[in-house]
Amino acid sequence: MTPAPIHYLVVSALLFTTGVVGVLTRRNMLVILMAIELMLNGANLAFVAFSRMHHQLDGQVVSVFVMTVAAAEAAIGLAIVVQLFRQRGTVRVDETTLLRG
């Protein structure tokens, strides 16, 4: 059976949701970064699927841009994580709770 756009959409939704769950529940910062990437790629997939559905290129163009941005974001995110690790010696997100109230 040929995958119809709706299948892609379901997959993208699943990816996105998995990403969200990852951000909300995993305590390792690197895993959170990965989860964010998952979310972004879920959205990408949705863009591409819709683009195909409408027989346009717009969505795919967006997708390329997003990939670039995601890469930049990941780089910055990793830099921040590394910085934090150097200072605190941990990558667990529930141990960075100095700022509160």
Binding site: L24, T25, R27, V93, D94, T96, T97, L99, G101
Partner: peptide, 16 residues
């Protein structure tokens, strides 16, 4: 303000 417990995931939960 007690909701602001410093845990970033808690904030994310509220956002979501």
């Amino acid at each position: 303000t007690s909701l602001q417990n410093g845990n970033v995931q808690a904030y994310a939960v509220v956002l979501f």
